[in-house]
Structures are given as C-alpha cells and as structure tokens.
C-alpha cells in the first residue's frame, strides 16, 4: 500500500478541473475568419488538454511517497498581507498612495511578528511619501495623491 498525501491529490484535482474549465471556455471562443487555417480557439484548446494531462500525471505522482515536507503553515499572516494589498487596490484612487501603501508596509511588518504598530505606520508613511515624491517629481509618473491633491492645488 502506497501512501498518498491529501494536499497533493487536491492540487492534482484542481489542475485537472482547471483544464476542464479552460477546455470548456475554449469551446465558446468564436472561430476566426474562414480563410484562417487555425482560429483563435485552437491554442486555448491545446492548453486545456495540456492541463488535463498534467493534472492526471500529478495525480499519479501524488501516490509516490513524499520526501519533501514543509512543516505547519500559518495562514493568518498570509491573509493579512493579501488583505492590505487588496485594500490598496480598492482605495488607492480615493485615499491616495501614501496611506494605502503605508498600510501594506504595516501589514508586512505585523505579519512578520513586529508589534510596534505606531512606529511602523510612521515608517510606512515616510517610505510611501519618499516614493511618491521620487516618482511624481523625478520620473514624472502620477501616483494618486488622494486628499493631498486638494492641498497642493
């Protein structure tokens, strides 16, 4: 009896399902012009089939005894970081670059076990501010100012 690890089976299943979805979606891509030998849906179909094959192969391989282990994962800091990044995506236009980027920095420090929230928030604001000035003044890019734009005019 060979050992199998549940996460690997789950991954292999996910790859296979993804292959199926890609294949199904590829079917609804309209064909190109009549004179094209190959339309726009052929390559997506190949990708779908490729994912199905690699999912099947991974499934076979997941029954091999594993020699690589990670130990226990703590997903809370991962979610914290992702949350801060999504918050930036949602709010950067309104709140501006400085506060949202400072929160991303802060989330990173908390995730890595630093509890000095006020200090790190200040560092984050300074870092984001330096970046904003360097980008907007030096490189001529426009990171959103947010409420600051009303002060600057």
């Amino acid at each position: 009896m060979q050992q199998s690890s549940a996460p690997k089976v789950a991954l292999a299943t996910a790859i296979t399902v993804a292959g199926g979805v890609v294949l199904w979606m590829a079917g609804s891509i309209p064909q190109g012009f009549g004179y094209d030998a190959v339309g726009p849906s052929l390559f997506p179909r190949i990708i779908g089939i490729g994912l199905l094959i690699s999912g099947a192969l991974s499934m076979l391989e997941s029954f091999r005894p594993a020699d690589d282990e990670n130990g226990r994962a703590d997903l809370r800091p991962v979610l914290l970081i992702l949350g801060a990044m999504l918050l930036l995506a949602a709010g950067v236009r309104i709140a501006g670059w400085i506060p949202t980027a400072a929160l991303v920095f802060l989330a990173g420090t908390i995730a890595f076990g630093d509890r000095r929230i006020v200090l790190n928030l200040v560092i984050g604001v300074v870092l984001a501010g330096i970046i904003l000035i360097a980008f907007n003044e030096g490189l001529g890019l426009n990171l959103p100012l947010g409420p600051l734009s009303r002060i600057g005019g």
Binding site: V104, F105, T109, F135
Partner: peptide, 20 residues
C-alpha cells in the same frame, strides 16, 4: 535590516512596481 521591515519594504516595492 530586520525581517519585518525588509519584507514590508519588498511588499511596498511590489505594489509600487505593479501599480505604476
């Protein structure tokens, strides 16, 4: 540089590179 600041900085750079 302490790890929290280092990775906080890397994340900020990653978001910056992507957004800009």
């Amino acid at each position: 540089i302490p790890k929290p600041w280092l990775y906080g900085g890397i994340l900020t750079l990653a978001v910056l590179g992507t957004y800009s």
